[in-house]
């Protein structure tokens, strides 16, 4: 009994310590992000490569997913609204659900599956191969050279790809609404504009940036936890990815609370 309670207490303390360490690490990186001295051509090169791997390489697949999901989601939503006699809410659902919730979520999911796992494995491999030691010996700051460009790439990629996803979904929605529901372009645009609010888009932007930050920072942190053994690499990736998904859920919930508070008080 006592052992079980001790175990719970130990797990709780470990979780709190881990959460606190993650936040401290996040603040260290945030502080470095705004330090101009942290940037040089080497960092820029890594940043460009990371954006290339995270955003440009994934683009064909991403656009196909956006068109596909857009058509399916708009088709299902439209059919349900017609069935319930609430087609008047079509614009609101597109803006409130597809653009501000669905687009960032799918984007984050795709990037997390592809790039977060890659970053986690990359850092873990570097740790096992002692490449991090090389950087240390040659006085190359790992935060500046390795972490910062990857995190910046994560933020930029999630923000840009979420917006791109929204635009593609809305354009495919325009085509599918005309085909499925006989909706004219004018009606579609009017319905969208009536529901579009700049405050929602700003919240979406902040949410995307926050998600971009954490879905790269967490894998980096777990990658650094790898030991000198090769077998520690999959373990660190596993833990990193589980925590990435927990972070995505937490950010989603926090963003929903923030949006409801904004609507309540402003």
């Amino acid at each position: 009994m006592t052992t079980a309670i001790e175990q719970i207490g130990r797990s709780g303390m470990h979780a709190v310590r881990s959460f606190w360490d993650t936040l401290t690490f996040a603040f260290r990186i945030l502080a470095r992000m705004f330090d101009v001295r942290a940037y040089n051509s080497a960092v820029r090169m890594v940043l460009i490569n990371q954006i290339y791997f995270t955003s440009v390489q994934i683009l064909p697949l991403f656009l196909a997913v956006a068109v596909g999901f857009g058509a399916i989601v708009i088709g299902i939503i439209g059919q349900y609204l017609i069935h319930l006699g609430l087609f008047g809410y079509f614009g609101q659902l597109l803006m409130g659900f597809v653009v501000t919730e669905f687009a960032p979520f799918i984007t984050v999911l795709l990037i997390a599956l592809r790039s977060s796992s890659a970053v986690n494995a990359e850092i873990a491999v570097m740790k096992v191969n002692k490449e991090l030691n090389t950087l240390h010996v040659f006085r190359i700051d790992v935060i500046n050279y390795l972490f910062l460009p990857r995190i910046l790439s994560g933020i930029l990629s999630i923000v840009l790809l979420s917006w791109l996803f929204s635009i593609v979904v809305l354009v495919s929605g325009l085509i599918f609404s005309a085909l499925l529901f006989d909706m004219s372009m004018n009606d579609y645009v009017t319905a969208l504009l009536a529901s579009a609010k700049f405050s929602d888009l700003i919240v979406m932007l902040i949410k995307c940036a926050t998600m971009g930050f954490f879905i790269v920072m967490i894998p980096i942190r777990y990658g650094l936890r790898a030991t000198d053994e090769l077998t520690s690499i999959p373990v660190s990736v596993l833990h990193g990815m589980v925590n990435v998904f927990i972070a995505i859920m937490i950010i989603e919930v926090v963003s929903l609370i923030v949006v409801s508070l904004i609507e309540k008080f402003i």
């Binding site: 090169m45 460009i48 290339y52 930029l156 840009l160 635009i167 504009l193």
Partner: peptide, 29 residues
């Protein structure tokens, strides 16, 4: 490197232009 830089630059410029055009249209309407 140049090829990668060019692709990344094009991606960023085009996406930003798309977003700005969308926002501008919304603001205008």
């Amino acid at each position: 490197a140049l090829k990668t830089e060019w692709k990344v630059g094009l991606f960023i410029v085009l996406t930003v232009l798309f977003i700005l055009a969308g926002l501008g249209y919304m603001a205008y309407k």
